[in-house]
């Protein structure tokens, strides 16, 4: 992993910072339940685009930061993100070839898995009850993915992140 092959690491870092900001932006309660899982979406994008640079380890650190910002148990989001990154990196060749709406279904599955895992961990430790609304962020992430994918693709090309 020599440094000269990699460019635009700051774009990756900034995109994560931006997604953290979107994740804690105050919103009315109904909108908050539908908030797309921005951080997971950014993670999936970079795992698909640069599977050698962004993977399980990045996902873990990003998850820990997300846990601190959301005041959840340390490791809760980290666990979900590690699984997401694993799936995205493992199947990045197939997912890249899919049309964008099929990719979106994959994103739906990964975000739903992350949400489900979060609720599951929380109820094991007695912090919250099972709710149906856990699936809402997966739906909104699914709907936003095609645009998200296009915009991030443009950004990646513009700043030559490889």
């Amino acid at each position: 992993m020599s440094l000269d092959r990699h460019h635009g690491g700051w774009v990756i870092v900034l995109s994560f910072v931006f997604s953290f900001m979107l994740a804690i932006l105050p919103m009315p309660a109904w909108a908050s339940a539908w908030r797309p899982d921005w951080v997971a979406m950014i993670l999936i994008y970079w795992c698909l685009a640069l599977p050698l640079r962004v993977g399980v380890a990045t996902a873990w650190f990003v998850g820990i930061i997300h846990d601190v910002l959301n005041d959840t148990l340390l490791g809760q989001h980290a666990l979900g993100f590690v699984l997401i990154a694993y799936l995205a990196v493992k199947f990045h060749q197939q997912l890249r070839l899919f049309p964008v709406w099929q990719q979106a279904i994959g994103v739906f599955g990964m975000v739903a898995l992350n949400q489900l895992l979060g609720i599951w961990i929380q109820s094991i430790f007695g912090y919250s009850e099972m709710r149906d609304s856990f699936i809402f962020p997966a739906f909104s992430s699914l709907l936003l993915w095609p645009w998200f994918f296009l915009i991030l693709g443009d950004i990646q090309r513009k700043y030559k992140v490889v």
Binding site: G55, V56, A57, A59, W60, G63, I64, L73, L74, G75, Q76, A78, L79, V82, L83, Y86, V89, K90, I121, F125
Partner: peptide, 19 residues
């Protein structure tokens, strides 16, 4: 990849319990 997955999953579970 699988090895790293397992390592980081264990690290997460350890952190959750410790926290």
């Amino acid at each position: 990849l699988s090895l790293r997955l397992i390592v980081f999953i264990l690290a997460s579970i350890f952190l959750i319990i410790a926290d």
